[in-house]
Design a protein around this nucleic acid. Structure first.
Lengths: 142, 142
DNA sequence: ATATTCCCTATATAAGTAATAGACAATAAG
DNA sequence: CTTATTGTCTATTACTTATATAGGGAATAT
């Protein structure tokens, strides 16, 4: 049931970027150092976020990444799905990557798996990047 | 966030065994065929369930496995944890395999991950093998 | 022009999952 | 007491996915 390290990298990067009050650009080297992430790996992660329209990027000196959307409009669920794929515990109950299973109609397991999927999707879907940043900010100062 | 195939095998086997009204022994070959699982792999799975005290086994002709405990006393959560390990989306919020993280106190992500863990544990913890068997049985006849 | 930074794809390495194999022990029945 | 059946246990292999590294190229600022 675990989230990948890659996804953790993505979320932590987004929090760091989202916490910047000036909405400036943050480059790979900076984020990699701050969050202790292998830079070339982080590159792939940020690129994916950029290609998904969550970050925008600028090349050249003082370039880097910044948020493309309002953090309040970015559910954590979107990031998890983007990086890790479906949140459902099994393909047979996945909304985003459903795979038909011949046992579907007689499977006693399906309902409980669907319930798990719904719970995860609800929690991660309701929580936005803005929320997460707020928590992080509060924890730092408080 | 996905459950392994191995765990799926375990749960399906338990449902098959739990559905037997006579509480008789079910051998590997039989279950493997009924559920379309590689027999030698299933062997490992059933052995783990037996060593965990969920199944009991008998060697020899007409031997096999049967439930050791009342299915109403077997939460699905126990099986998932046994086969797949912690259900938490990250080690830093795991109850069964907690790993300390230096960022713990300032991490904005932790609360939401903990919430996900709690939701999964609640759903899988409340649902017993008996419940799942009941659903399977209803689906078959209805 | 040049230095900086992102873009993209390919490849390597490590870890985890799934499956196979085989020698051994227990049990039941002839 | 021999044989067939079935579980026990550990090792090994194959496969898949996750993680990380590498490097040539394009965009941008000075």
């Amino acid at each position: 049931m675990r989230m990948s390290r890659k996804c953790d990298y993505a979320l932590r990067s987004l929090i760091l970027i989202g916490l910047d009050p000036h909405d400036g650009y943050h480059n790979i080297a900076e984020i990699a150092q701050a969050e202790d992430i292998p830079p070339k790996y982080l590159e792939q992660v940020l690129l994916a976020l950029k290609n998904a329209g969550i970050l925008s990027a600028k090349s050249g000196p003082n370039g880097g990444y910044r948020l493309q959307k309002d953090p309040a409009e970015i559910p954590v669920l979107d990031i998890v799905r983007l990086i890790d794929g479906p949140v459902a515990p099994a393909r047979c109950v996945s909304r985003t990557a459903h795979e038909k299973c011949p046992r579907e109609s007689i499977c006693g397991l399906r309902p409980v798996l669907a319930e798990v999927r719904d719970a995860i999707a609800k929690i991660l879907g309701d929580m936005t990047l803005a929320d997460v940043c707020r928590k992080a900010s509060a924890a730092k100062s408080g």
